[in-house]
Design a protein around this nucleic acid. Structure first.
Ligand SMILES: [Mn+2]
Ligand SMILES: [Mn+2]
Ligand SMILES: [Zn+2]
Ligand SMILES: [Zn+2]
Lengths: 137, 137
DNA sequence: GTACCACCTGAGAACCATTCTCACTACAGG
DNA sequence: CCTGTAGTGAGAATGGTTCTCAGGTGGTAC
């Protein structure tokens, strides 16, 4: 990852390290506000947003637009491994879920089939499952 | 649908009819701005947003949070039929795609499997495919 | 038909996550 | 060191969305 940033002449400064560390610690995508709470005053909001934007451009961070006017960020698949999300309609938490490789293969087959029928060239897919988490059911 | 609104003592006024008609005409989810352009001054923005909110509460309209700070709305599955979305990374359009029932069954099987492994009670799923549409490839 | 009342509407203000601005600082390379 | 480019922070600006409030509408009861 540091290499990727260096290639693009993007400095991996201490502020950015703090942001990446907070994202690495999270078990699901996190909003800027959540990250700010977690990080504290060490990284002011404007810098936090800028860091997220820079890291997004570099392909290190990926945004998720999952709730009204709220963007949640997480590390890209190539860092954390490809996964999907479980969204609790009761408490609103979004958790990562890793799926067995054999299932992921099936998902990919389906995606390719669907896309092909529509003359669409698939690049990525996003399967999100809404429901009630173990805590809320 | 009118029945559903009546049950909840929500009036199906002419303004709301216009909004529903515009959504029914669309081939994919539409933002408030897009709807406003399509509809014209007949429905002022504040009323448009309120209508969308009311219809959403009633389960007639479903929001999609797909782009930075932009919500797109569409009629609920029980009206249009269950479907998924193809999102073009080049031109940004979001198109509906109906998938063969046999594929949908497979998607559901996968969703149930994934959810079960995480102690999650699935209620709905959302499979979105990102890539380049026929026009942009 | 008229009165009542809950619901609905419209214009604009308010809200709030995000982005921009600008003066300043930090760091790498020479 | 010197210089130039990249990064930072506080606050202002932006823009989609929601709220407020002063009316309007229409279904229902009598
Ligand atoms: Mn995730
Ligand atoms: Mn759709
Ligand atoms: Zn929950
Ligand atoms: Zn396209």
């Amino acid at each position: 990852m540091e290499q990727r940033l260096r290639e693009r002449e993007i400095r991996y400064t201490s502020g950015r390290r703090v942001v990446v560390a907070a994202l690495a610690r999270a078990e699901g995508p996190r909003s800027a506000a959540e990250l700010s709470t977690e990080i504290g005053a060490a990284v002011p909001l404007s810098s936090l947003y800028r860091s997220l934007a820079v890291l997004e451009d570099a392909g290190v961070v990926v945004p998720h637009f999952g709730a009204r006017g709220l963007t949640r960020y997480e590390l890209a698949d190539w860092i954390t491994g490809h996964h999907h999300h479980l969204i609790c309609v009761a408490c609103g938490t979004v958790d990562d879920v890793e799926i067995l490789p054999e299932y992921e293969i099936k998902v990919n087959e389906l995606v390719d089939l669907i896309a092909q029928l529509a003359g669409f060239e698939p690049r990525a897919h996003d399967l999100e499952i809404e429901g009630r988490c173990a805590k809320c059911s």
